[in-house]
Amino acid sequence: MANQSSTPNQLTDARISPLRLRLIEDMSIRRMSPGTQRSYLSSVASFGEHFGRSPDGLGYEDVRAWQLHLIEAGLSTSAVNARITALCFFFRVTLNRRDAPEMIPLARAPERLREVLTPEEVARLIEAAPGPKYRAALSLAYGAGLRVSEVIGIKVADIDSVRMVLRIEDGKGQRDRFAKLSPLLLDELRAWWKASRPRVYMFPSRMSAFAAARQSG
């Protein structure tokens, strides 16, 4: 049961912010994505709220108790591990407790085979796209193995039709990389470009504006 102590939680109490600022600085120094930072802040704050105390006043036994609480509450293994990973970072980096990785174990997730679409199913999926923009975007995601965030971040200048490669900036792990570009995929992208004449991003949207801000930051 949560301890209803009156000790203020520095992650949520607006009057006491040094701990929150320190955690944000630690994440920013390591160039963690905005989404990861929000997730970590939320997890660490929830940890403190559960016990009614500031997180820096809690220990590994409290982490264990909260982990059991999350499991008993019915959260999935991945959801529990996401929260515990945030606590591991908080203890190891922000609180400088170097033994945190050994003291805060993650639950082992069950390994399941993923369903793989047949080429015919993929073709039907792409053909069912509502318009040439989405057909080109789906073709790009499938043909080059890109994530959604990578597709919306592709610029016209990233397509190299001479070397037949595609430049992906700020991909997973905030790394740049190249992907192969097939002649069929190049034709699909050219058809979309001729139809819409995008200037910077191949698929302009509010999300591509977010991608631009992330890459410039």
Rank of each mutant, 00 (worst) to 15 (best):
E188N: 07
F90Q: 10
I154E: 00
W66Q: 04
R98P: 14
M103A: 05
P110N: 02
F90P: 14
T77C: 07
I71E: 12
G131P: 08
R147A: 10
Y60I: 12
L181G: 02
R112E: 14
A144E: 06
R97P: 14
L146R: 00
G173S: 09
I126P: 07
G131K: 03
R135Q: 13
G74N: 07
L58E: 08
G57E: 11
F89G: 04
L68S: 08
Q174F: 06
L140T: 15
A107R: 12
A107C: 02
S161D: 15
P130S: 03
Y142E: 08
P132G: 01
R83K: 15
D158H: 13
P130R: 10
R147Q: 06
R83Q: 09
P101M: 00
S161A: 15
R167E: 09
I159D: 04
F91C: 12
D187H: 01
I71T: 05
S78K: 11
E169Q: 13
A137N: 03
A82P: 01
V116I: 10
R98Q: 15
F90Y: 08
I152Y: 05
P119V: 00
A79G: 05
L189G: 02
G143R: 00
R147G: 02
L58C: 02
A129H: 12
D176A: 07
L117T: 08
L184G: 15
A86F: 08
Y134R: 11
L184I: 09
E121F: 08
L106K: 10
A179K: 07
A137F: 00
N81G: 04
D56Y: 05
G74W: 12
P110R: 11
P110D: 11
S161G: 08
T85E: 06
T118G: 07
E127V: 03
K133W: 11
A109C: 03
Y142A: 06
P110H: 07
V63L: 11
A129L: 12
G153K: 01
L58F: 03
F89N: 09
P101Q: 11
R147S: 02
D176R: 04
L186G: 04
R108H: 09
D187M: 05
M103R: 15
E150A: 04
G153S: 03
L146D: 11
Q174S: 10
V63A: 01
H69E: 15
Y60C: 10
R177Q: 09
A123C: 09
Y134K: 11
G153I: 01
R124Q: 13
K155F: 05
N81C: 00
A128E: 15
R147T: 04
G173H: 04
G145R: 03
K172L: 05
W66S: 01
L106G: 13
G145M: 06
A65L: 12
R64I: 01
G143E: 10
D56E: 13
A137S: 09
A144C: 08
I168A: 05
C88H: 05
L181T: 08
A179F: 07
I152S: 05
I159C: 06
R177W: 01
L113P: 14
D56T: 13
L125R: 07
V165I: 12
R124C: 04
P132R: 00
I71Y: 06
I126L: 00
A136R: 01
P130Q: 06
N96K: 03
A137E: 03
V93I: 15
R147F: 02
N96E: 14
I152F: 00
D158N: 09
G173P: 14
R112W: 13
D158P: 01
I126A: 04
